[in-house]
Design a protein around this nucleic acid. Structure first.
Length: 264
DNA sequence: CCTATAGCCTGACGGC
DNA sequence: TGCCGTCAGGCTATAG
């Protein structure tokens, strides 16, 4: 689930629940998910402090602490999410990090498959540079010109290029399918072979799809009826032409597309 | 340099 | 029912 729109919703969720509350305790139950930091160091950085603000870049969430000026890093892998709750009975099943606040509430980071990551850094820029992340797909500076320049230079399938976090950060398997569907482009088309028209449509749809998904709270059931995401399964029907949705492998990932509406 | 592929980790599901 | 293979919306390391 967690691509740009999902993580943006997590950010808003955390911002409206867990900020400005004194942290009473921190428990890390899966130390194997820690990257370059010890459980003790995270505990030390958070305990007694408060969470001040949250920021997102691509699929990464950064949460700033008030006093010590550190940033907690959360990446959600394929199965991560956040939950803010009071009663112990509501604790999610694969909780890996648990922050308890002095008001009796808790913030849990749940990640069933442990493909996510928990970290602690001095500034988001450090991680962005280290991972060589491209610009966030929705940042204003990533305009049409930069988009075209980026994708002109890649010879991989456009779907793979869109998902390459070094080119642009935030797009994964699901939303790359949606963006390509909306732009009417076959996912296996070589990125460098897209003409100006296709490039322009792709950029426009990238922006529109991601923003629409955020407005829909990244909830498939709230997406517009013209979106293909709810039909990404065998027997899926194209919301535009009512033809059958097809599936194939591109760059090792399953791509769903409409053979009628998306031409090479 | 660039692109493609296996592997990491866990759980759900379908077929035998 | 039980077992096994496959697959899942992430990224990284390595091979070609």
């Amino acid at each position: 689930m967690p691509e740009l729109p999902d993580v943006e919703i997590f950010k808003r969720y955390l911002s409206s629940t867990a900020l400005h509350k004194t942290i009473q305790s921190v428990e890390i139950h899966s130390t194997d998910m820690l990257k370059g930091v010890s459980a003790r160091a995270i505990e030390k950085a958070l305990k007694g402090d408060q969470l001040l603000s949250a920021r997102r870049h691509g699929k990464y969430l950064f949460v700033k602490t008030a006093k010590k000026n550190k940033w907690l890093v959360l990446h959600f892998g394929m199965t991560g999410f956040l939950k803010y709750f009071k009663r112990q009975a509501r604790i999610p099943p694969h909780e890996r990090l648990l922050i308890a606040f002095s008001n009796g509430y808790h913030l849990a980071y749940d990640c069933q498959r442990k493909l996510g990551e928990i970290g602690l850094i001095d500034a988001p820029e450090v991680l962005i540079e280290e991972k060589e992340l491209g610009p966030d797909a929705l940042e204003p500076g990533f305009n049409r010109e930069r988009f075209m320049k980026t994708f002109k230079n890649s010879r991989s399938a456009i779907k793979s290029a869109l998902m390459n976090q070094k080119y642009v950060a935030g797009i994964g398997n699901i939303y790359s399918d949606e963006i390509l569907f909306q732009a009417g482009i076959y996912p296996g088309t070589r990125s460098s072979e897209l003409d100006e028209n296709n490039m322009e449509r792709l950029y426009f749809q990238m922006d529109r799809v991601l923003k629409t998904a955020i407005e829909s709270r990244a909830d498939p059931e709230r997406l517009p009826a013209t979106f293909v995401i709810p039909h990404r399964h065998s027997d899926g029907v194209c919301p535009k032409c009512k033809g059958e949705i097809a599936k194939c492998k591109i760059g090792g990932r399953t791509a769903y597309y409409c053979p009628q509406c998306q031409k090479g």
